[in-house]
Design a protein around this nucleic acid. Structure first.
Lengths: 219, 219
DNA sequence: GATTGTGAATTGGTTCACAGCG
DNA sequence: CGCTGTGAACCAATTCACAATC
């Protein structure tokens, strides 16, 4: 039994794999059979050397003088990302954002079906969003067990985020994606990603200002 | 007239400034007057050396043996991020996500008021979301001029994202935040940030798999 | 005595450039 | 001949560790 992927893949590479993956999905749809690093780089918005180095961490799957087999590469990337098996998702916090995420098709499409919705507000518990009934946060342990929930999405206000994260981890959820505008602490073995909408705008603000500020002396 | 901030701030530092900023806002609310790099590091989920180095790019604002003045530091970070002046936002694409963003309070709070909503679907044009009337994409140039729109948020399907980005830039919008699951190309002088929900989950998938995979040989 | 500010060391990531191979 | 795979060179970011100084 070979392990599916043995080597360590650098973080920066891991973060680009989904982008390559999407480009490859499009290429399959177009019926293209092989792809060069230059072409894939173009579709992914990076340079060709980076594509080759990134892919080399997965294995030596290219053919010199030819390129990479599109379908094969797609499977390898999928395997590296663990997309072979579904990872059911629970969304906690059904405000504007949480409800939008619940209805958003993009997740379910590949490997991340939304299988539970949870909110602290008793008025929301029992309502149905996009065909799923909203549960109480107290039911998390049962839900995780019964539905095999693997990923928790936190879309609560900042104040609730840390207790919710704790509850998710206690209940057995294995990784967390948070939209709450606050820092949350999780044990080392729990992968955590953070999407912070307000921060994104502020970062843009910096570069915008930099670009538009007149030079003091135009010497 | 000194320029507000002259030196180049590293990208990684810029991305952390909003996090420090939020911690400082909380501290002001708690009435704390000074903060050490260690404490701020704790609140921001990073280490103290990083905080000191990051802040040193803004200027030498600390006092040895004491720490940083909370309010003063907050103002300096705000200035570095260009938060002194509002940057009105237009949201293009009012599906689930776009509508949720339109109603999401988090933006408006600090410096990024949502001032226009745009959708390609004629059935949506003229409807009102959270007090704002939805406009046609053809009206972008007029809207940008009349409302001083500075930031465009793209929450359209992938296929529409590039033309929408082009239209935003043509109309004079200065920076772009995109949620569309595709690569977009913009001229060098336009700051662009990308939030990709499906990718985030896939990245989590990698680390989850890594952590949970049994070692081949448990030697 | 406490805590900053920062050179120096280290680590991680990107890019170059070319040998290797189909 | 074309394109990959990868050492080597380069650059950016992080961390260390300690002198400066309130």
């Amino acid at each position: 039994m070979e392990p599916v992927s043995t080597r360590e893949i650098p973080d920066a590479t891991v973060a680009r794999l989904p982008v390559y993956r999407r480009a490859l999905v499009d290429m399959v749809a177009q019926g293209e059979a092989t792809v060069s690093s230059a072409r894939l780089a173009d579709l992914a918005g990076v340079n060709a050397a980076k594509v080759r180095k990134d892919l080399s961490y997965l294995g030596t799957y290219g053919v010199r003088g030819v390129g990479y087999d599109v379908e094969f590469l797609l499977r390898q990337i999928g395997a590296a990302l663990g997309l072979d098996t579904d990872a059911p998702v629970v969304i906690v916090g059904l405000g504007n954002l949480g409800q939008a995420l619940a209805r958003y098709g993009g997740f379910t499409t590949r490997g991340f079906p939304i299988r539970a919705l949870v909110d602290a507000d008793p008025a929301k518990v029992g309502t149905v969003i996009d065909g799923l009934e909203v549960s109480s946060i107290n039911d998390l342990p049962t839900l995780v067990e019964e539905r095999g929930l693997a990923v928790g999405i936190i879309s609560t206000p900042a104040a609730a985020a840390q207790p919710v994260a704790d509850a998710l981890i206690d209940a057995g959820v294995g990784s967390i994606l948070t939209f709450a505008p606050t820092v949350i602490q999780v044990p080392d073995h729990i992968p955590l990603r953070k999407v912070d909408l307000a921060s994104e705008l502020q970062i843009l603000g910096y570069y915008h200002q930099r670009g538009t500020v007149e030079d003091d002396r135009t010497a």
